[in-house]
């Protein structure tokens, strides 16, 4: 019984190697692709439709602060490893400031008053915000 099975294996050894190799390559590629999709930590900062800058939050080892020009005033943005926030904004509602630190890949930060938005290039789109 066992020798018959081994015989069959020997006869199809080429096919087995081909299928096995393709299977391994495909799985590896799929894993790599999905890894890159979800692990991106690029925060894109826009003023209206213009991209002002892109920040890779995974490389921000120390907290730093910078300003971008909005419609009515400058907006202070802070970044640290894997996180970003609007630290200061002169908008009346202060809603964007009250969002606090947002982790990379999570919800966008919007200040419609100053026309500034921060979103993540590879937000999975799994959830939306209504408010």
């Amino acid at each position: 019984m066992a020798s018959k099975f081994l015989d069959k294996l020997r006869r199809h050894v080429v096919e087995i190697i081909i299928v096995g190799s393709i299977l391994a390559a495909s799985i590896t590629l799929a894993v790599v692709l999905s890894f890159f999709r979800v692990s991106s930590s690029i925060a894109i900062i826009k003023h209206h439709n213009e991209t002002i800058m892109k920040v890779d939050l995974s490389k921000e080892n120390e907290e730093r602060h910078f300003q971008v020009k909005g419609d009515f005033s400058f907006v202070t943005i802070a970044v640290k490893k894997d996180y970003i926030c609007i630290e200061h904004n002169d908008c009346p509602s202060q809603y964007c400031v009250n969002e606090g630190w947002v982790k990379s890949g999570e919800k966008p930060i919007i200040c419609a008053y100053n026309g500034i938005s921060i979103y993540f290039s590879e937000d999975s789109g799994g959830s939306a915000i209504l408010g």
Binding site: G126, S127, A128, I129, G131
Partner: peptide, 8 residues
């Protein structure tokens, strides 16, 4: 389905 967080 998409999860929709209600800010209100």
């Amino acid at each position: 389905y998409t999860k929709v967080e209600l800010e209100d």
